[in-house]
Write a protein that binds this DNA or RNA. Sequence first.
DNA 1: CACTTCGGCCGCTTTGGCAG
DNA 2: CTGCCAAAGCGGCCGAAGTG
Length: 310
Amino acid sequence: MTTTSSAPPSETVASGDEALVELLRLSGRGYTVVRHVLNQLPSGPADRTSVLGPMVTERKRRPLQLYLLLLTVWPWLQNQQPLPNIVWARALTTDTGRIWTATNVSEAWNDLEERGLITRERKSRAVLITPRREDGKAPYTPPGAIKKNHRETFFILPGTFWRDGWFEKLSMPGLAMLLIIAGLTSDKQEAWLTNKDAGKWFGLSPRSVEAGIEDLRTKHLLEERAEWIKAPLSAIGATQRHWYHLTGEFDTDQRRALQERTRQEVRARMSASGAQKASGSTIKIKKKGAATGATADRKVKRRRKSAEES
DNA sequence: CACTTCGGCCGCTTTGGCAG
DNA sequence: CTGCCAAAGCGGCCGAAGTG
C-alpha cells in the first residue's frame, strides 16, 4: 500500500454507481426518509408552498438531488468524517445522466445553504455539512418525533429511487410530482388532485404538475383511476376526478413493508455486536475518495464526449 | 490540498400568452 | 383542455484564479 503513482489503473476506480451503492449500504437502510414539510407547509398560512415548488421553478435540480442524498446518508454520515465533495459528485454521477464535478457539488451546497437546508463549516481543507429540517426553518432532527401532541409526518423514497437512477432519469417536474404523490400516499393507497389545485398547494405551475404526472406515467411509476363525481355546474352535470398512485417499490403498501422489514433488521443488528461493522467499510470509501482526483472525472467527461462525436 | 468563485457563451426548461 | 410560440432566465460547461 505504498504506491505513490498519481492515478490508479482505471479498472480499480470506483464508478458512480459503486459509490452510491456503498453509501446506501453504509447508511444502514436502503431508503430515504423525508418530512412532508419539504413539499408543503402545514395548514395555517394561506400560502403553503415550501421549498420544493420554488426549487422546481428555479430549476435547482442538482441541489435537490444532493439534499435528498444527504438526508439518505445522514444517519450514518453524522458520525463520520466529512465526505469530500468529489465523493458526493461520484455518487450522483450516473452512466447516462449528468456528470457531477466537485464544482457542481460546491455550488449546490451554496444554494442549499441559502435555502436554509444545510449549514456548512470549513474544517481546514474539508467542509462539514449538516442538514437542516426539510422546510429550512429549523435544525435537523430525526423525523418522526412527537411535537405538540402530534407526530411529525414523513414519507419514504425506496431504494429504487437511487439504485435504478430515478433521481436522474426523471424530469424536474417528474421528480417533484414523485415526491408530492409519494407524500400524499404515505398513509393511503391513492390521492386525487387537479393540475390547477396541486399547483397552488405546492407552488408549482399547473403546467409543471401536468408535465410531472405525464413523465411518471410514461415511465410506469404512476397509475391513474378516474372517478365520476357530480358537478352541477358542468355541461354534463358530472366531472372526472383523477386518483393517482405510485407503482412497484413506490407503491404505498410496498413502502410500508420496506419500512417494517428495515425496522426488524435494525433491531436484529442492534442485538448483535456492532464490532465488524466499524472496521472495513469506512476505510474502503475513504480510499475511493482520496485516490481519484478531479482528473478522473475529467477523463470520464472526455471519454463520453468523444463517444458522442463518433 | 480541497474547496470556492468567476466569467462567458450556449442550449434548454419553464412559463405565460394566445389560438383552436 | 391541448397545442404551439416566444421570452426569460437558469443550468451546463470549462478553465482559471482565489481562499482557508
